[in-house]
Design a protein around this nucleic acid. Structure first.
Lengths: 199, 199
DNA sequence: CTCCTATGTGAATTATAATTCACAATATAA
DNA sequence: TTATATTGTGAATTATAATTCACATAGGAG
């Protein structure tokens, strides 16, 4: 069997994807260079041809995740225009994304990702901030168009929106997938929407 | 200086407390037997006189946390009786507890605590479940007394209640304490309460 | 007071993983 | 076709922390 030599761009993607999959199944704790390498089909030391360190590999995983999250938001905003439709669709898509990738909320919100790494923490903060701003904008738009009450703070709502998804994802994971995220999201959404609607 | 020899009960508490404080400042990643020992004023190997392993030490920290959380809930239920007053007070107390102990949400909800430890994961699941049930009960009582709408599912609400606290705590931490948790809780609470109140 | 047990000490020992390095094989540009 | 840079390999090397162990000492039971 001949040794495959692939472009570093390709490998970087393969590695980031493999790392994410590994985190999905074994968690951050189970993430080792050796296992990632095995999944990609190369030898551990070869990882270092494509990433300077394990840390930079993790950065790549974070980028992967945020790209998808933002993609969900942007695509949704292309597809629908009513603010409630948008939020609902984002919610649904996020749930699906998370069900396929257990790890996402745990990676993003788990301190092991950034503890002792000021730079990454700041980066993560910026990315989450950007995400929340997007959600806020949708809400502001809704207020502008008189679909959403004007006496609520868009930023607060955007964090509460996160509060529909994240705790549910955590419970789902910790309960060994017994907690029904989709059903919860459905019920919570109803209440959430109603509480924002203009009388 | 003479060597202090303390009862293992006392040491276990000291160690659990020291571990928790350490996690507050340096995160799970920074939690080492050596550092804990130093804080307690003993030598690393001495830890093993009081805990079989690092894992069991972490278990003790978890117990510490849940004891306090439950304590908040129970004390609140002793002090107030109106369901909204109860929830509001629990919210306030949790926020205060979390501000004093950054680590709490990150410990409870961080996979590093339970990944690869089925037993602890199950235990954590039970404890969180018990907590949510308590919150649910308060809501059911409110429904019974006609303060809270009856067309909402108490379990859903209890998870949404978590959704007020947890994302805020995470944002506070990741933003290097720039995010104003207390203010968010205040605003979110207003919306939350209103959405549950009987018309 | 004296023994005995519980606790503490410091120096190994282990375990796990990241990282480095010298060497090999492949692709590609000329 | 053939240099040359890039990518891959496998065997060290390092780093970090948990854990063990033989020995020391305080403090209560008798």
């Amino acid at each position: 069997m001949s040794i495959d030599k692939l472009d570093t761009r390709v490998r970087q993607e393969q590695i980031a994807q493999a790392a994410m999959n590994l985190i999905n199944t074994t968690g951050m704790k189970g993430l080792s260079i050796a296992k990632v390498a095995k999944r990609v089909g190369i030898v551990p030391s070869a990882i270092y041809r494509h990433f300077e360190s394990k840390d930079q590999m993790i950065d790549a995983v974070l980028n992967l995740i945020f790209d998808r999250l933002m993609d969900n938001v942007l695509k949704t905003c292309m597809a629908t225009f009513d603010p409630f439709d948008r939020l609902k669709l984002i919610l649904t898509r996020h749930i699906r994304l998370i069900l396929d990738n257990h790890a996402i909320p745990r990676i993003i919100f788990s301190e092991e990702v950034y503890s002792g790494n000021t730079h990454r923490k700041a980066k993560l903060n910026r990315k989450i901030g950007r995400y929340l701003i997007k959600i806020s904008e949708i809400i502001q738009q809704g207020q502008h168009e008189n679909h959403i009450r004007k006496d609520v703070d868009p930023e607060t709502i955007s964090v509460m929106f996160l509060g529909i998804i994240h705790p549910a994802a955590i419970l789902w994971h910790i309960s060994d997938e017994a907690f029904d995220v989709a059903k919860h999201a459905e019920k919570a959404w109803r209440i959430f929407k109603e509480s924002l609607s203009t009388a």
